[in-house]
Amino acid sequence: MNEAPQSPWTDAWRRMLDNRLALCGLGFFVFVTALCYLGPILYKLSPDAQVLALESTLPFTRANLVEVRFDEEKTSPDEVTTLEDFAEVYALDPEVDLETLAKNGALEIKGVFFQTISRFHLLGTDSKGRDILARIMRGGRISLGVAFLATLTALIIGVNYGLVSGYFGGRLDAFMMRFVDILYALPFLILVILLMVLFDGFHLKILLIFIAIGAVEWLTMARITRGQVMHLKEQEFVTAARATGVSTFSILTKHIAPNLLGPVIVYSTLLVPAVMLLESTLSFLGLGMQANMASWGTLIKEGQQSMRSAPWQLIAPSLFFSATLFAMNFLGDGLRDALDVKSENQ
């Protein structure tokens, strides 16, 4: 136990590289994050643009559509619809008009202007003709965003709480840990639901969600931190620092905090999926995001409702959701194995 506190990092990294599952997890996680945040730069379809007449289409579909303008000079179309719908609603003689439209790409009927366009939907469209991949990318930003913010909240509260409690020990520690025990007894999920229902009209509900979730999840973080700090403060480098008159604040920030990084990272990687699952449960109960913020949970819920008519609407977001959770869990497990000094000594 005398090794210098910094050296395990190289060991850990080596062990990490040996763990293929964890590496795959990390890789997938990076991929999903990049896809959600950078994907829209390349894949330009809007997640909100509906083509009502298109309805659900299978993945890898090229949809041939018609832009309808009631004024020729209008830049954005008044309506985007399918050729079938055009033939049924607007065309005077469907056969002739469709042929003309196909040949010229544009057509005017009774002062209404039509123009053909085509869109490629990689993962198909949902029942309102919206692109599923675009919705998944935006949903991912929301889900991951909420998960990170909630985890961050839990981290900030939990680490600071555990740090103080563990380092100062004694009566303060006893009192603070008693308080944590009490909070453990609260039916938190129920309080979160209550909070979601009762403060529903609140405009920044998304803030509320991650604050609520963060408030639930910091307890375990505090306990883990405390245990680690109690162990660290007996280490020679800390006692030495204390003997040479380094201030408590410096000891906490410069000597102890860096060594907390391992367990904190591990726990965070496990917390992110837990938060995402909780958010999806709230979405299922209709207590999650606002309507214009479709998270993965919301998409899964929508997909679940059309499970029997258009299963890919459930499968696509579920796949992203579960695979991300999978990846995070494997990554977390791998990191735990890699950073856990205890298991190595046994």
């Binding site: 999926p273 699952l277 999806s280 449960t281 299922f284 949970g297 899964i300 819920k301 679940q304 499970m307 029997r308 459930l314 579920s318 959701f321 579960s322 959770l325 999978f326 869990n329 494997f330």
Partner: peptide
């Protein structure tokens, strides 16, 4: 087991029912 943890109950339930 990991799949069990990662799939939300509200997806597993209706699928089992179906």
């Amino acid at each position: 087991a990991m799949t069990g943890i990662c799939l939300p109950t509200f997806v597993v339930g209706p699928i089992l029912a179906l």
